[in-house]
C-alpha cells in the first residue's frame, strides 16, 4: 500500500530531487540525517581512542610553551640589540653555533608546526562537509606539515656556517 502512495506522490506533486536522488513522499517527507552512532548488529564497536583528548591536551600545553618560545624569539630577532636590521647570515650563524639556540629553534619549529597543523585539522573537520573535501584538504595539510618540519629540522642540524 505504501508503495502505491509513493508512486502517486512522487509523480503528482512535482517534487524534484534534493540532496541526492531521493524523492520525498508522505512517509518520507524530507532528507534523512543518519542518527548519530546508530547501533545495529553490524556496527563495529566504536574505537574509543584517546587521540582527540591527546590532541586537545597537546594544544593547551604546546600553546603555553609556545608563548614563551615565540615571544622571546621575537624579542631577540626584532626588538633587542638593533632590531631587525641586524639579522643576516652572520647573525643566524652566530646563534646556531650554540646548541641551546639550536634546540630552542627546533622545539619552536616542531611545536608551532604541530600546533598549527592540529588547529587546521580541527577547522577542516568542522567546516569541510563532504568526506572527499576533507580527505584532500587534510592530505594537503599533512604533506605541507611534514615537508616543512623535515626541511626545517634538516637545516637546523646540517647548517654549515662556512658555506660559500
Amino acid at each position: 500500500m505504501s508503495t502505491d502512495t509513493t508512486v502517486e506522490k512522487s509523480g503528482g506533486s512535482g517534487i524534484g530531487p534534493v540532496e541526492g536522488a531521493s524523492l520525498y513522499d508522505a512517509d518520507n517527507p524530507a532528507p534523512l540525517i543518519e542518527a548519530p552512532r546508530k547501533r545495529t548488529t553490524k556496527t563495529p564497536r566504536a574505537t574509543r581512542g584517546n587521540f582527540e583528548m591527546a590532541a586537545w591536551l597537546f594544544m593547551r600545553l604546546s600553546g603555553v610553551v609556545l608563548v614563551v618560545l615565540v615571544i622571546t624569539h621575537l624579542l631577540i630577532q626584532l626588538v633587542l640589540d638593533g632590531g631587525v636590521s641586524k639579522i643576516g647570515f652572520a647573525f643566524v650563524a652566530g646563534r646556531w653555533a650554540s646548541p641551546f639556540w639550536q634546540v630552542w629553534d627546533l622545539l619552536m619549529l616542531w611545536l608551532a608546526m604541530l600546533h598549527g597543523a592540529n588547529g587546521l585539522r580541527t577547522v577542516i573537520n568542522d567546516y569541510a562537509e563532504r568526506p572527499n573535501t576533507r580527505l584532500w584538504l587534510k592530505g594537503l595539510l599533512y604533506t605541507a606539515t611534514v615537508f616543512t618540519i623535515l626541511l626545517g629540522t634538516l637545516v637546523i642540524f646540517t647548517f654549515d656556517p662556512n658555506i660559500r
Binding site: I33, A35, P36
Partner: peptide, 21 residues
C-alpha cells in the same frame, strides 16, 4: 542542524539518540 520535516517542525531523532547514548 536537524532535518526540517515541515515548517518549524524538525526531526529530533539524532538529538535524542545522542541523549540516549
Amino acid at each position: 542542524g536537524l532535518t526540517v520535516l515541515k515548517d518549524l517542525v524538525v526531526d529530533m531523532d539524532p538529538f535524542f539518540q545522542a541523549y540516549r547514548d
